[in-house]
Amino acid sequence: MDSLVVLVLCLSCLLLLSLWRQSSGRGKLPPGPTPLPVIGNILQIGIKDISKSLTNLSKVYGPVFTLYFGLKPIVVLHGYEAVKEALIDLGEEFSGRGIFPLAERANRGFGIVFSNGKKWKEIRRFSLMTLRNFGMGKRSIEDRVQEEARCLVEELRKTKASPCDPTFILGCAPCNVICSIIFHKRFDYKDQQFLNLMEKLNENIKILSSPWIQICNNFSPIIDYFPGTHNKLLKNVAFMKSYILEKVKEHQESMDMNNPQDFIDCFLMKMEKEKHNQPSEFTIESLENTAVDLFGAGTETTSTTLRYALLLLLKHPEVTAKVQEEIERVIGRNRSPCMQDRSHMPYTDAVVHEVQRYIDLLPTSLPHAVTCDIKFRNYLIPKGTTILISLTSVLHDNKEFPNPEMFDPHHFLDEGGNFKKSKYFMPFSAGKRICVGEALAGMELFLFLTSILQNFNLKSLVDPKNLDTTPVVNGFASVPPFYQLCFIPV
């Protein structure tokens, strides 16, 4: 009986604490739906499609509103004006990374994606500088992407125009580009180590996009005490870190300090320079996690976009025909596509942009946080508050993009057929937390897609009208449904 009384008292205290925290903070924060004790607004949000729920709530509470995930307040920004004001106009104040408990377990605050403060700034600055020195957006990395595009075309030829699921092959190409940047090595598509790495990356994007992960991140005790797919994700990350550590040891034994070959060499050189400046942010643990982040951000996002792009091109054969006509006119058949071609191919450029806009790969991006107490639109948001960005509300804005739910390359073309930029184009987020590999991803999408369409016609196994382009999961990332196609050599 005594234990029951204690339990009831504990629960009562928890409920009172929950109510007090919510009521004391709500006077400062933007308005929002009334949260339930302990669980907050979790029942009012469709976990399978958070973005749709945010759109519905914005119609009631406006472009800036507050939700509670458990006891934790989260300020939501919906629509271009609110997102721009926060991420661009007040970029420094909104540059923090929001709480992501599962990532905390995986990387302990290291790396480039989930770190904060001085650690994040130094690692991000170093990573950007190193990638630029190796030619991100310049010639040397373009050579690597072109080489991988040629290998991709050869792998597709091996399908002999038979029906195939493109998931694996389209994942190999961007993964190999990242391998060449980090390890100075590309792998054969049949290499077992490479296959294991690909498998872990593919599993992780599916797990991260599941409703279960949303629950884990908002009720963090689940991570330590409950079984579930989150444990598989943590094991996959541990596998990748151990693999990278092996490569780091190989580099330490063979590195030429006067001739760095890749990202690992550059990081080890930085560690050597910083060894007298303790404590340094440049450690082996930081290198492991930064490399894992580059793999995660640079492989599955690009391969998922490529997979979605081919599905949309199957669905819209008239678009595919126009792209192939432009390829034939500008590039021809006797040389590989290059980035200089893009400025002469406005329709193809528009298609690449429209694919990214339409699929809305990361509907709410990753959570941000404010780095200080900030007054925002007459609300006071306390330091450390998590900020949720609705990228969907920007990419699918119906004023900027008429009929935003329709796939239409003319969203990025003017009346004369010239490519038209849009400030609403934010597939990689915006501001200080914009994806480090934005330029690389854009290069890969253009070169891989043009190389495929230069060499193959795409054949659907069903009537294009019957192809479903609805994402199968739409949590962290929008993942396309399973499909097969035939690559018919031109």
Rank of each mutant, 00 (worst) to 15 (best):
L15I: 10
L458V: 06
I264C: 08
P464L: 13
L156M: 03
E444T: 03
F114R: 12
E154S: 09
Y243R: 05
L102K: 08
Y308K: 02
E93G: 10
I389V: 07
E272Q: 13
V38A: 08
N378E: 11
Q278R: 15
W212L: 07
F267I: 05
I50E: 02
Y243S: 04
R342I: 10
K52S: 13
L29R: 08
M129G: 10
F263A: 02
Q356Y: 06
V330N: 09
G135M: 15
K119N: 12
G431Y: 14
Y483D: 01
F114H: 12
A350H: 00
R125G: 12
H368Q: 06
E300W: 12
V145H: 00
L43T: 11
K72W: 05
D468W: 04
S115N: 14
A149D: 00
Y347A: 01
K383M: 06
E93Y: 13
K138P: 12
L380I: 15
A161N: 07
G70E: 01
L170T: 05
N176M: 02
V330G: 03
G27M: 13
L287F: 04
K119E: 13
N231A: 11
D2M: 12
H251T: 04
C151K: 15
N289P: 04
V83G: 02
I434G: 07
D262Y: 02
I213R: 11
N455E: 14
H410G: 12
C13R: 01
V6F: 15
H368A: 05
I50C: 12
I74S: 04
P227M: 13
C13E: 01
G70H: 03
L445A: 07
M240P: 00
P260T: 13
I213G: 12
K459P: 01
G137K: 13
L36R: 05
Q146G: 08
Q192F: 10
P427V: 07
A106N: 11
F187Q: 05
A161L: 04
L440Q: 02
P211T: 09
K138F: 10
G332E: 04
S365F: 14
F428G: 05
T167V: 02
D408F: 02
E300D: 15
A106W: 15
S115W: 05
L9Y: 10
V177S: 01
F194K: 01
T299R: 02
S343M: 07
E199G: 10
E203F: 07
V352G: 02
T364V: 11
C10S: 14
H316R: 06
F65G: 01
S209P: 05
T159P: 01
K432Y: 15
K160W: 07
S303G: 11
S422T: 11
Y80E: 05
N259D: 13
T159S: 10
C172T: 04
V473T: 12
E203Q: 14
L395A: 08
R125F: 12
E272T: 10
T386V: 11
K241C: 04
S365W: 15
D265L: 02
S3D: 11
I389W: 02
E122D: 14
N289S: 11
F446P: 00
P471Q: 03
G442Q: 15
K206E: 15
D188P: 09
V145N: 00
S303R: 06
L413P: 01
V248I: 06
K28M: 15
S390Q: 07
F407P: 00
E281R: 09
L208W: 08
